[in-house]
Design a protein around this nucleic acid. Sequence first.
DNA 1: TTGTAAGCGTTATCAC
DNA 2: GTGATAACGCTTACAA
Lengths: 330, 330
Amino acid sequence: MANISDVAALAGVSTATVSRALNGKATVDPELSARVLAAAEELGYRPNGPARNLRKQETAVLALIISDVENPFFTAIARGVEDVAHAAGYSLVLCNSDDEQAKEREYVDVALQERVAGVLLSPTGNADTAELLERHTTPVVAVDRPLPNGRSDTVLLNNRPAAKEAALHLAERGYRRIGCLPGPSGVLTADERLAGYRDGLRAAKLPSSTSLVRRSRFKAEGARDSARSLLTQEPPPDAVLVANNVMAVGVLETLAELGLRPGRDVGVLAFDDAPWTTLLDPPLTVVSQPAYDMGAMAAQLLLDRLASPGGAPTTQTLSADLVVRGSTTR
Amino acid sequence: MANISDVAALAGVSTATVSRALNGKATVDPELSARVLAAAEELGYRPNGPARNLRKQETAVLALIISDVENPFFTAIARGVEDVAHAAGYSLVLCNSDDEQAKEREYVDVALQERVAGVLLSPTGNADTAELLERHTTPVVAVDRPLPNGRSDTVLLNNRPAAKEAALHLAERGYRRIGCLPGPSGVLTADERLAGYRDGLRAAKLPSSTSLVRRSRFKAEGARDSARSLLTQEPPPDAVLVANNVMAVGVLETLAELGLRPGRDVGVLAFDDAPWTTLLDPPLTVVSQPAYDMGAMAAQLLLDRLASPGGAPTTQTLSADLVVRGSTTR
DNA sequence: TTGTAAGCGTTATCAC
DNA sequence: GTGATAACGCTTACAA
C-alpha cells in the first residue's frame, strides 16, 4: 500500500509538504498542493493510521462496550452515541461484552492498548475493570450503570422511582399479588428496580414477600424459568413487573404456554419500549427509557471531558416514562 | 502511560528483553522474565497498540460494517462473526452504515486507514466502496449481499427460492391476491426476493401485477406507508409477503390501524425470525434465515483468506427455512 | 541469553 | 513556503 514517500516522490516534493497539503495546513503553495492531491489520488494513498496515531499520541476513535448487542435498549444507546461522536469527527467502535466480566475486561484491555480517545461502558460490575480504567488516564463514561468505584462521568436512569411508579400503577389497576423479575443480583439497575418495586408495594400497602421475586440474568431464557416458577406456585401472583424487554419475551412466552392472558389473568409491565410491544394483543404497558438520549448525553460528556480533562465527574440522571397500554388492564 | 523503556528500567534489563519476555519468546532467562512481568504489573504497563501495529505491519482487528444495528438479523450475524473471530484471537469492531452509501464509504475508509486485518461488509451497493476495496489489498468478505463487482468471498442466502417458497405457501393457503414489500430497488436481496415472489405467483398460476408491489427502505416507517397504500387500494390484496422483520413491524401496525386481522383478513409472511414473532396473535409465519451461521461462515472465510491470500474467491449460499405459524391461516 | 540499534510511516520542529 | 530530520514505542535482526 502506497505510503507518504511514494506520494512525495510522484508529486516531486518532500514528505513534509505532502503531510501539510493533505492536512490542509494554510502555508502551502496552491500549485504544489494540487500536485500532491493528484498524486495521492492516483496512488489511492491512505495515511497509515497506526503511524499517525503513534506520532500524534491520540486517536479519533471512541469505544462503546455494551452488555448485549441483541438488546434494542443498548442498540438505541449505540445510535445516540454514534450520532454525537460522528458529528464531532470521531469514529465509534462497538464491542459486545455479553454481560461477562471476562469479556468486558478483555475489550477494555484492547481499547486501552489501541489508545482509543475514550471509552463508554455499561459496566457488568467487574471491580477489576474499574480499577484498570482508574489506573490509566483514558477518560471513561459509564452508561446505564455506574462503575463500582463510581469515580467517572455517569449517565443513569432514575430506576428506583420508575419501578415504584410501575408497581403503584399495577396496584391502582387492582392487582394484589404483584411479582417481580428484577434481573441479576449485584447489578445496580436490577437491584434498584427491585427496591423501587418494594417501595411501590409499601406505598400501596400491599404485602411484600420474597416468594414473589425471582432473580435471573437479563435474558429470555432466564426469565422463562423464573416466570414459570413464579406463576406455578400457590398462590400465584396476579401481576408481574419485568426488568427489561428481552426478559419480557421469555415471560410472555411462558404466559402463553400456561394459557394465561396478559392483563386479564396476569398484569404484565416491562421496562423498555421495544418496537414490537404495540403489536401484542393486548399491547404491553412499559416503562419507556430514553435510550437514544442516554447515549447521546454520554457521548457529549465524554467529548467534554476530552476537551477539558480536569474537573470533578458528573452524574446525569434521566427520567423514564410509564406508557400505559392493555397488558395492565384486567 | 508507562512505556516499554519504563518497564525495562524498573526491571533492570533492555527493552528488547522486555519485549521478548512479554511476548513469551522461549529464549529468555526465567528470572529476568519474572522481573519483567513484575515490573510490567507494577506499572500497569500495556503495550502501545499503534506502535506495535506500525512495527509489525499488521493488526489483530476485524471490522464488520452492517447496515442496521437495530435489526436483529444483523446483530445475529455480528454474534456469529464475533464468536469465530474471538476464538481465533481477533477483536471485532462493529460499524453501522445505516444503509447509507456515504457512511459505508467513510467506515471502509477508516478501516483501511487503521489497517485492520480484514473487513466484513453487508454492502449498500455503493460501487465506490467496491472499487476502493479492490484497489487495496485488505481482504474483504461480503455478507448477505454481494459487492457490486463481485470479486470477493461472499456469504449469501438463497433469497429467490426462499421467496418463491413463501409465495407458494400463501397460494396453497388459499390467498389469491398476494402483495409484496420486497425492500429498496437496487439492493440485491430485495430484488431477488421480488423475483422469487414472482416465480411463486407464476408457479401457482396467480396473476402478477405491479400494483401489488411497493418498494421502500428496509425500515418500519417506509413499510408503514407502503402497506397503507397497498392495502387501501381497490381491490386490496388478501396477503402480503414482507422482506424483513423491521418492515414487518410497520406492516403489522398498519393492519391493526386498518382493523385487519393477520391470517383471517390478510395473510402475512415475513423474512427473519425475530424473538417476538411467536408472541403475536396469531404468531407470525416467517422465512427463518440462519443469520448466526452466516456470520460465523463469513468470519471463517475471512480467516482462511488471511491464512492463505491466494486463490479464487468463493461464494457460499445458505438456505432459509419456512416456519409456518398462524398468520398464514385464514 | 542479552543488548544495541535500525526501522515501521507519520507529524512537528527547525533551518533555510 | 519548503525540505531535512528527529521523534513517537515497539519488534527484530545482528552483535556480543
